[in-house]
Every structure is written in C-alpha cells, then in structure tokens.
Design a protein around this nucleic acid. Structure first.
Length: 577
RNA sequence: CGGGGUGUAGCGCAGCCUGGUAGCGCAACUGCUUUGGGAGCAGUGGGUCGUUGGUUCAAAUCCAAUCACCCCGACCA
C-alpha cells in the first residue's frame, strides 16, 4: 500500500482524552478514532492489525477442534429471562424494543443463544463433545468505559462454548482451550499469564484468566516467586495462622471506653494506644435482606468475593439502617461482644487476638479486652481476608506473595449445567438416561488483546509491533519521490518484497524526511527500509529494525535478503511454544 | 451512581477572575526558498465560544439548568 493513496492519519500531539499508553498510541498512529464514550472505529491500520489477532485466534481455535459460527448480536430478552441473567447483568445490558414493542438486548455474551440452539440440535451422547465459537461484536453498557479500546462499550470478542457429557469430559475441553489460548497469545507476541480465577457465585469447577502485566491493568495478580503460584487476588487463599489459643484467665475483664466520634480502625487504635492487628473489625454485609456479621482483624482487608462464596449469593455492605437494626448503634461501633440473635462468622486470623479492641454496639463507645470464647463466640470460621503483598504463599508456605497489575485478555471457565438446565439442553446417554450437557465457556477480548499488545510493545517513539500482528511487515521510506532514481529503487523494492509474500507500506508522500522518520517510528512496523539520494550514491539503502532502531547500510539485494531472514526468524520464534 | 475536571477553528491551548472589536501554536491553502529526524519567509481561508435560559445598554466572560467528554472509586473480555 502506498501512503499517498491510503488513509493513514497520524497525530502529532497527544489527544487530551487519552491517558493510557496504548490509547494514546492507537489514536496517534491512526489505528482508531473515538465516536463517543467507549465507542471506537478502526481506521485501516487498526483494522488490519485487529484482523491479524482475529486470524491467529481463529487458527488456534480451529486447530483445537472448535467450530466457527456466527450468532446475532440482537437477541430476544426472553432467553435471558430464562437463565435469570436479565436481572443479574441488569443495567450493563444494552436494551431496545422493536416496532411491535418486543424487547431485545444487544448481546454482552452468548451462552443463552448458543445453548438454546444447541438444545434443539444435539440429542445423543454420540453428538458430544462439541465446541462452538464465534468472533463477533459484543455490547456492554459499562459503568465506566476506560483506556480506549481496553474497556469499550462495543468491542470484538471471540467467545466459545463447549458441550460435554460429563464433568470429566468437560475438563478435557477446558484443557484444550487453555492450551489453545496460551498458543494464540504467544503468537500475538504477548506475555499472557494464566492465573487461577474466581468462578463467581454461580459455582463452576475451574477457571483461569489470562493476564498481560501492565500499568493500566485493572486486575490484581498474585504471584509467589518461590513456587510459581499465580492467582487473581480475589481468589487467593490466605494462609491459616498458627493457632494462638488465648488464655483468657490472665486477661482483665472487658472495659468500655468512651470514644466520641472515633469510627475508623486507625482513629480508635491511636486513641486506645494499640495497633490495628489487635483490633476486631466487625463488618455487616447483606445478601438480599439477610444481614451477615463478619469479624476481621483490624489490619486486614475484606475480600468480598470470599464473603459471597460463604454466603452463597451476591453480597454488599449493609446500609446504615440495617447496621442499626443489627447492632443497635450507628455505623462505626459494631462489635461481637453482646451481639445477640445473629450468627457471628470470623476470619481465621481473629484467633491470633488474645485481647481485642472492638466496637461496643453503642454510639461513641468501644471496648477493650474482648477475649474469644469468654466474651464472644464465633459460629463459623472461614478465610475472609484479601491477601496482602509479603503474605506467605498458601501453596508452598515458604514463599512470599507479590501483587502486580494485569489486563485480562482471556478467560476460560467450566460452567457446569446452569445454562443447559435452564435452557433445556439435554442429551440421552448410552443407558438411555436424559442428562443436561456440561458446558464450558471461553472468551478472548480481541480488541483488548490488540491494546494489550501495544501496551506491552511500545517505546517513547511509538508502537513496536510484533511481526505476527503488525498491520504491514515492511515500511519503505521513499525519502525523495521527486528523484527518479530514488523512486525507481523504492518501487522495485516495493514489488520485490510483495513478490516474496511480505506486506509492505511505502511512504511515497511528498513530505520532508523528518516527518517520514517520525511517522515511521510512530507506526512501528517491524522492518524499515530507507531509500534516499545520500545512500544511493554508494548504491546502498538503509535497513532499520524498529525494535532497536539500529541501522545497517546494504545494497537493495542484501536488504531484501536480510528482511526476509529476519521475518522468517521472528515469525517462527513466535509460533514455537 | 458518587467525587474531581474540561468544553473557545481540524488538533493542542490562551482569553473568563475584573463584561465592551475572539486570539496563539500546529495543521490546511497560495507563492518563493528549502530538502536525511516533525523547515523558513510572506500571504489566505476557517468560529452560532457545547446547548438552553437568565442578568445587562452590552455576555466566551456573571448566574442557572442541561448535555458531552476525561480522570478517581464499585463490574468485566
């Protein structure tokens, strides 16, 4: 493609709406433009790169035996009613009505549609397993679209669904997708770390997220350098402390202390001359209208996902009215001592507090010397806290945990039978029994993967594309299109590279060299060939690798050879796992 | 939704506090010069100052409402 003919608008200045590196570069290099919050259009370079990511994913899915289909984005909402997700996903769903006032949603994902269709098609164990996927536009009315294409309201996703006869077989399907994902991301040049993930309230046996380490990552990844354990922070178990049986005999009786206007752990700790680790934080959650009381050590952070798991449903912090109903006190003075008529659940680490400071269930009062067993009892012990950096690893115990940020670009999931039961996807097994299919679902954010790749592969001058997803392989800079010789050599190389199967972008615009170099850095195509009068005096052109910006003077023939060699090398390196 | 911020030429911004002819840089266009890391000179075009309403002789500027976008928090690929 000749730049003089195509459409490659670059921006010299940083657009003010962008802050994330990938977002800025995608706008500046002319890959995308924004239409409205979370809505982007792909310009030629962006669209080419996106299709490359898509194609890599498609090839790996096909190789793993998945079957490509295409489902409508527009779907009747009754399907979503049947699985209860119309409620569960709620306002995040884009909704609209047709001329007859029938309600539709723009699909945020396709479990309902695929399961509904499959239910009518697959009837026998002989038909299973099957794995269907599509690459298609999804819609989610995000609370906050962010970072350009990383969190958009309309985006491109590869979503796949497997149907198996039992859990065991489903795990095989899952495993093959897991492996396919690793290959696909590797081929895109991405460092995607599979991390154990939360299966959510809905249960499900297995789940991994694929994370790309990045500053703008929105998920916290926990890693243990000693044993290699990696997990989403939400899911990571906290190592259970060695029990510290408090000898309550030596502890003075509970004493009430006037603590006017002191509510937070830090305020009370300072006032009572103790440390947060000796305090009992009493948190009231609710699931529906049902309150739950959870005790946590003052220096720890609650992990709501763990609370939700223990409760068996979605939870949120209780509102002030409910807290008053439970504790008879305003927010900030709850404590386990004297709290009647409700179960008390506690994190294991509460056992390490021999004599705790906690709320008195009375406005402006806290108590000290609260002893477990003597002054309060716990009905249920669980792991409720979020792990912190430097915590011992729950797997190997000897290692310490580190916490970093990552962009989630893929998620694999064993779903179980939730959707097959709700949507009647049953099959007959070899003994003639009717059974629900066991499902798995697998997602890759295609557009997000592209953004993550740029996030990982860029320097201060612009994008540095991995060959596999670069919109073009070679960037020819024809420095002086007005000069016949320069022009001729440029055109010749342009043809030659294409004959060898490489994709070439040629800057033949009537621009000054400076602009061409800057734009070329910004676009970041892997191999650059500069042709100018100066070099041609010695019969040489210049070969520049974008990765290093190192320059080599070569004859046109040597240059073709070098580029082809590099291309082969780097392409095969990306393909090998 | 809560908190913070911004809307003035295609892009980046000043002007607003203290009301009175709408400005700068880049980009675009014309001409001359220049031609290996975002050129120089001279000239030209381009604006309902987000929108609506109010105050005023007079509003980009003051007041109110409203819309949009961005950033920080809770959800997800």
């Amino acid at each position: 493609m000749r730049q003089s003919i195509g459409f490659f608008p670059t921006l010299r200045e940083v657009p003010k709406e962008a802050e994330a590196k990938s977002h800025i570069l995608m706008l500046r290099a002319g890959l995308i433009r924004q239409l409205a919050a979370g809505l982007y259009l792909y310009l030629p370079l962006g669209w080419r790169a996106l299709r490359k990511v898509e194609q890599i994913v498609r090839e790996e899915m096909d190789a793993a035996g998945a079957i490509e289909v295409l489902m409508p984005a527009l779907q009747p909402d009754e399907l979503w009613d049947k699985t209860g997700r119309l409620q569960a996903i709620g306002p995040e769903m884009m909704r609209l009505n047709d001329r007859n006032d029938r309600s539709f949603v723009l699909g945020p994902t396709h479990e309902e549609v695929i399961t509904h269709i499959i239910a009518g098609e697959l009837r026998s164990y002989r038909d299973l397993p099957k794995n269907m996927y599509q690459i298609q536009t999804k819609f989610r009315d995000e609370l906050r679209p962010r970072f350009g294409v990383v969190r958009a309201r309309e985006f491109i996703m590869k979503d796949g669904y497997s149907f198996d006869v039992d859990e065991e077989s489903a795990k095989h399907s899952y495993q093959s997708m897991y492996e396919a994902y690793k290959k696909a991301f590797k081929r895109c040049g991405l460092t995607a770390i599979p991390v154990e993930a939360d299966t959510g309230v809905m249960g499900g046996a297995l789940s991994h997220e694929f994370m790309v380490p990045a500053e703008i990552g929105e998920a916290e990844v926990v890693t243990c350098s000693a044993c290699g354990y990696q997990a989403n922070r939400e899911l990571t178990e906290s190592a259970i402390p060695q029990e510290n049986a408090p000898d309550s005999a030596s502890i003075p009786p509970v004493e009430e202390v006037h603590t006017p206007d002191l509510r937070t752990v830090e305020e009370v700790a300072e006032f009572m001359k103790t440390t947060p680790s000796q305090m009992i934080k009493t948190m009231i959650f609710k699931s529906g209208d049902q309150p739950y009381v959870i005790l946590l050590r003052g220096d720890h952070t609650i992990n709501e996902a763990k609370v939700a798991k223990a409760v068996g449903g979605p939870v949120e912090m209780a509102d002030p009215e409910l807290i008053y109903k439970v504790t008879n006190a305003p927010v900030g003075f709850a404590g386990p001592v004297g709290l009647n008529g409700i179960e008390i659940w506690a994190d294991h680490h509460i056992k390490t507090i021999p004599s705790g400071v906690t709320g008195a269930n009375k406005k402006d009062y806290h108590i000290r010397n609260a002893a477990l067993g003597r002054d309060y009892k716990v009905n249920r012990w669980e792991d409720f806290r979020a792990v912190d950096a430097d915590d011992p690893c729950p797997k190997c115990v000897s290692g310490k945990l580190a916490i970093s940020w990552g962009i989630e670009i893929g998620h694999v999931f064993v779903l179980g039978t939730k959707y097959s039961v709700a949507l009647d996807a049953y099959f007959t097994d070899e003994k003639g029994n009717r059974k629900p299919m066991v499902m798995g679902c697998y997602g890759i954010g295609i557009s997000r993967t592209l953004a993550a790749a740029i996030e990982e592969h860029a320097d201060e001058n612009g994008i540095v594309w991995p060959v596999s997803i670069a919109p073009y392989h070679v960037h020819i800079l024809n420095l002086t299109p007005k000069n016949d010789e320069v022009n001729q050599v440029s055109n010749q190389l342009y043809e030659t590279f294409q004959q060898h199967g490489l994709e070439v972008l040629m800057d033949d615009r009537d621009e000054r060299p400076g602009s061409k170099f800057k734009d070329s850095d910004l676009l970041g195509l892997p191999y650059r060939v500069v042709i100018g009068e100066k070099g041609l005096r010695d019969g040489k052109v210049e070969f520049v690798e974008r990765k290093t910006l190192a320059m080599e003077k070569l004859t046109p023939d040597e240059c073709v050879k070098t580029v082809l060699q590099k291309y082969e090398q780097e392409s095969t390196a990306l393909k090998s796992v």
